[in-house]
Design a binder for these strands. Structure first.
Lengths: 180, 180
DNA sequence: AACTTATAATCAGGCAGCTAATGATTAGGA
DNA sequence: TCCTAATCATTAGCTGCCTGATTATAAGTT
């Protein structure tokens, strides 16, 4: 599941040595890249452990959050296709996610009166309660992960991470975006 | 496969609104966290597309790299257990990875003369050639991803990402470390 | 009405990682 | 020597995600 399958990152000297053999290797770029994957993996591991304790996967959690009724907003009723689009997964995957969530009583499928091909997916009261019970710890964990960075460092991090993500999307656009 | 299943990150105002309902939610921490997962996912997507073009998974690539003979180093012959340890996967998973790599002629298993329970896994010439042919593009992609950051920004990023990873490992240690 | 095209949701099958259980071998202790 | 415990690799079966094919419905064309 993790993106980086390495217990320990290679030392910088090792990157330098490797760069002699492969002139394309930019040691400081590789170092940043490895740190990025590791930090992402570690952060994900922390929240995923909490997910597993509540018997929910990242995918199912995302679906619940997309359906979650915010403070005074409308009920957020979406079709499987809309959910798949916003979650960035294929419709087939979304079918499976909704299957599990429906079996667990978190969401319900209701046929659409206008178009019989379509369904509406709604969060049940049980799903609402579930989220409200687990979200505090979820947010607490994220807060702990970042509590050693001050506001200035956080702004810097957001800016630099944004640069990398934008560069990735621009230089290597996605070939087949999910379900175009 | 990605860690973050969201096409678009929530707006900051949305985090602020949510924070009114959940006092544990630290908006700037959440923003950094979302950016971290997204940047990690995007970076991984870029190198994984290259892996797929060469019919290799992240796991198999890691095994090949662990066995890769550096400039003048020794041949890097390892047992499946050592590979699993260094790659951070279970031994069962490593068995499967080696199965595939051996079927493709990238590595060989040889019985250990000293201890008949053990094997040695070795990179074949074909595996060596394979790595040498794909690594330049691999490193090139990492260079492109980071080419909009100067050296100062890279050092900052390494430092801040390191802080997060260390905080994660320290505040939320892994419960069952692979195969202890 | 009949035909074609597009779209919604689903089904079938695959792959990568995991845990738990198994068989073979080694090491240590009485 | 024999018994027990530990270790190595493997197998079997699970989950979560994926792609590609399938079925039902809708909409446009003639």
């Amino acid at each position: 599941m993790p993106h980086l399958l390495l217990k320990d990152l290679p030392r910088y000297e090792c990157l330098l040595e490797c760069a002699q053999r492969f002139p394309q290797l930019d040691p400081s770029a590789c170092e940043v890249f490895l740190h990025l994957l590791r930090a992402g993996d570690e952060g994900f591991r922390v929240i995923d452990a909490h997910f597993q304790a509540h018997n929910v996967s990242q995918g199912r959690f995302t679906v619940l959050m997309l359906l979650f009724e915010k403070n005074g907003g409308e009920p957020h009723v979406l079709t499987p296709a809309q959910l798949a689009e916003q979650a960035g997964v294929s419709r087939a995957t979304m079918t499976g996610l909704i299957d599990t969530l429906e079996r667990d009583g978190m969401v319900t499928r209701t046929p659409s009166p206008a178009d019989r091909r379509m369904l509406s997916v709604t969060l049940t009261p049980r799903g609402q309660t579930f989220l409200e019970s687990m979200l505090p710890e979820h947010f607490r964990r994220i807060g702990v992960l970042l509590d050693s960075l001050n506001e200035s460092e956080r702004r810097t991090l957001v800016r630099l991470l944004g640069k990398i993500a934008n560069r990735a999307a621009e230089a290597f656009p996605t070939a087949a975006p999910g379900q175009a």
